[in-house]
Design a protein around this nucleic acid. Structure first.
Lengths: 236, 236
DNA sequence: GCAAAAGTGTTTCTTCTACACCCATGA
DNA sequence: TCATGGGTGTAGAAGAAACACTTTTGC
């Protein structure tokens, strides 16, 4: 019995849109922030939303995401992975809309992070002090999922490094872990553990604010990928 | 400077489809299998594809997935989670198509698993003996990603249980781990570890093929969820 | 009684954890 | 010289891995 009843039913989808939305994590002033944009138009006018937009014809969802972040915000993304696809029938009051959401990390940088627009339309939010109301679409849910993934992923993959500059000290890295996980890890055990992986390449020392100069390291990305493919795991 | 240049560009997407595809894992004869369907029509006629189909108007992607599996194959899904969304511009030669793919596990059951169609149109494949050529769309890639997730997830979440019946013996469970991970775990350490979680409820004993009868257990789902929310982790 | 499958206990080793101590620098 | 941040070492606890022994059944 061939499944010939696959012809279009009256309930099949006709008109809808597919877009990408990104939750972008940045580390500034010893805390983690994400940017949200105040919507200027209906629906959800004056509500907080994630940076994103529609996918164009010749691009993959991922490149749409990168383009948006580059064009609109001038951000260079250090790490990007797909988070989840949201597609509840009523998530957009206009018409059926799917959002392929992304999880992004950007490296700490010298320039104060901003994108020229005034703070009423776009703003960095501390991930522990996000707005409780006034969200557009299901973006609050997306952000919550992203934060959950950030916390989970930090413990088994070296994504903390993507939030720092290429050269970093182990104290800085530890601070990332403490801030995100809400822990107060032991400084010494942390150093030992990280060094034992053999993935940190010492570069130079740099004076610390007060006290002994600290050693900077670079992450051996190539070797990490290699070990990962061989199936080794790391409890970072 | 309001972003008023957001008007439709010539390159914006116009016509496309969104569907769901599922990679369904089942445990039979001490091995893990997935079902693939031979496509009857172009494009990719006579190529192997995943069960799936378009999303209807009033349903979420997840319920579309469940409906498909229920309707087309009569399967009762034990575990379902979103895997990844594929949306490369050229993945469907007809028009732009997005596939929200799902990762599904079904429990071992008494009935021989099949769905009435002859084996030329649908077939269970051992996950280590999948076809190497003749795949439709990017479905080979989807399956590979699903297998990778199965292996990864097995070690930190009790998904192996979803492949077994509600009552199971620890030997059966260990066999699942060995088969999927390609290991030969120590029988005694395995038992000890599992019992120490306090999540297994003994039910009854059942005669084993030859030798001492084996103890069956039930998994304490409720308690597991509770502990999980409290942030405890398990190295299954 | 013997082989096969199930269940329990013990010893050893590795890893994690909690500390104490030393070093280099600026005020 | 003292307070501060950076770096190293060591002892105990906890967990993982290796392994030996007993029990219960079918033939």
């Amino acid at each position: 019995m061939p499944p010939s009843r696959k012809a279009a039913r009256p309930t099949e989808l006709s008109s809808f849109i597919v877009s990408v939305d990104s939750v972008i994590f940045a580390y500034m002033n010893q805390a983690v922030y994400i940017p949200l944009i105040m919507r200027a138009v209906e629906p959800f006018q004056n509500c907080w939303s994630l940076p994103g937009g529609p996918i164009l014809e010749k691009e993959t969802p991922e490149s749409a995401c990168l383009r948006k972040l580059e064009e609109d915000m001038g951000l260079k993304v250090e790490y990007l992975e797909q988070l989840y696809t949201f597609g509840a029938p009523d998530r957009d009051p206009r018409k059926r809309a799917f959002s392929i959401s992304y999880f992004a990390l950007i490296a700490e940088s010298e320039e104060p992070l901003s994108w020229g627009q005034d703070s009423r339309t776009a703003q960095w939010f501390h991930i522990d002090q996000l707005p409780e109301v006034g969200w557009a679409f299901d973006h609050q849910q997306i952000v919550q999922m992203a934060i959950k993934r950030l916390r989970a992923k930090l413990s088994y993959e070296p994504i903390g490094l993507s939030l720092l500059a290429e050269e970093f000290s182990l104290s800085e890295l530890k601070r990332i872990y403490d801030v995100i996980l809400g822990t107060e890890l032991d400084r010494r055990n942390f150093q030992k553990k990280l060094k034992s992986t053999g993935l940190l390449i010492p570069t130079r020392t740099v004076p610390s604010p007060r006290g002994k100069p600290s050693q900077l390291y670079r992450f051996d990305e190539a070797r990490y990928k290699q070990l990962k493919e061989e199936g080794l795991s790391f409890g970072f």
